[in-house]
């Protein structure tokens, strides 16, 4: 218990520091102290720190929404990864690997194409709900396919993910092929995964879809621990497995879909973050879920920071950054799992 609270506090402090640093970094450098002063100034506390007249506007309307969006999407993806790994009872489950992101992505592209003729789809919430629907359906399909006799099989899960990914990508490709100039530009921009163009409007569009899972999922932690024994054993121990599974799929896909809808596919956060936490604090979901939420936020904020500074003034899509970091970790995980199976 102590360990859990300690780790959560430590990570939270780290997150705040990184938010401050990230918000201050960019074409116009803002000193962390200035960042703190400007933010506190917003709520009426005035620190004796001098800052430029233009700084608050840049900070408030450009930097902060982007960082907050990274925080939200990062924690959403990480929590979704932890939940899916719990659901599949396997540390290799990840929204991108099992096709949930691709399903969301296909629906999102479809929405972008339809926006021209159906203006109501420009609404952020409707867009998010539609993407969520696509993600939910793919998650359900993969889960159903990979489950044999109440046990989710790892190989079947990954293969089903490959298949769903291929199918969704093909359909997305087909839509892209048929898109016009303007649609194509917004699809390409979107597919690469970017947090650019973030505004308070985007943040408020994403917020409920991420907040809900982040609040609800920790409540399933104890049941998820027992669920690790197996679906049947969990039921024997008093876990209402059907309700738990539904809750997990809904929460996980909701978080993933919201992220995909605004920022495209951002891979490996859901895989790597829970894994790092497990290495530090063990597999107990009561620690894993909250810590994953915070660490996911940290990681994506850092990744976004890299993406917009490493080749400034150009931006490297954030999905590329997470993939570059995530893939080696994923390979290392597979090798570890292999050794475990042999032993």
């Amino acid at each position: 218990m102590e360990k859990r609270t300690g780790l959560i506090i430590l990570l939270s402090v780290l997150l705040i520091l990184i938010i401050i640093v990230a918000t201050g970094t960019g074409a116009l450098a803002i000193h962390p102290l200035q960042v703190v002063a400007i933010l506190l100034g917003k709520i009426g506390m005035h620190l004796p720190v001098a800052y430029d007249e233009t700084m608050p506007a840049i900070l408030w309307f450009i930097r902060l929404p982007r960082v907050i969006l990274a925080v939200l999407i990062g924690s959403g993806l990480a929590v979704a990864g932890a939940a899916l790994q719990g659901l599949f009872r396997n540390p290799l489950a990840d929204p991108t690997l099992i096709g949930v992101s691709a399903g969301a992505s296909f629906t999102a592209v479809l929405m972008i194409l339809l926006q021209a003729s159906v203006p109501v789809l420009r609404n952020m919430y409707i867009m998010n709900i539609a993407t969520f629907g696509g993600a939910f359906v793919t998650a359900l399909i993969v889960f159903r396919i990979s489950r044999t006799g109440g046990q989710a099989m790892m190989t079947t899960m990954l293969l089903a993910g490959v298949a769903i990914n291929a199918l969704c990508n093909a359909m997305t490709g087909f839509l892209t092929y048929n898109a016009n100039e303007e649609q194509l530009r917004s699809i390409t921009f979107w597919t690469l995964g970017s947090l650019g163009g973030a505004s308070w409007q985007t943040v408020s569009g994403v917020l409920p879809f991420i907040l809900l899972p982040v609040i609800l999922l920790p409540r399933t932690a104890q049941a998820l621990n027992v669920f690790a024994l197996g679906e049947r054993e969990a039921m024997h121990s008093g876990v209402k497995t059907a309700a738990l599974k539904t809750q997990l799929i809904i929460c996980a896909t909701m978080a993933v879909a919201a992220g995909v809808a605004v920022a495209g596919i951002i891979g490996f956060v859901g895989l790597v973050v829970p894994h790092i936490i497990r290495q530090i604090a063990g597999p107990d979901h009561r620690i894993l879920i909250p810590c994953s939420a915070i660490t996911g936020a940290i990681l994506l904020t850092l990744a976004d920071l890299i993406s917009r500074t490493v080749a400034a003034p150009a931006e490297v899509p954030v999905g590329i950054v997470t993939a570059l970091v995530g893939t080696p970790v994923f390979i290392w995980l597979i090798i570890k799992q292999k050794k475990l199976t042999i032993a």
């Binding site: 690790a228 024997h236 008093g238 063990g282």
Partner: peptide, 17 residues
Amino acid sequence: ARSRAVLSQQIQLQLPF
């Protein structure tokens, strides 16, 4: 679950509890 417990064959726990 409060009135009975079950020990099944082959429990596949893959997380390092």
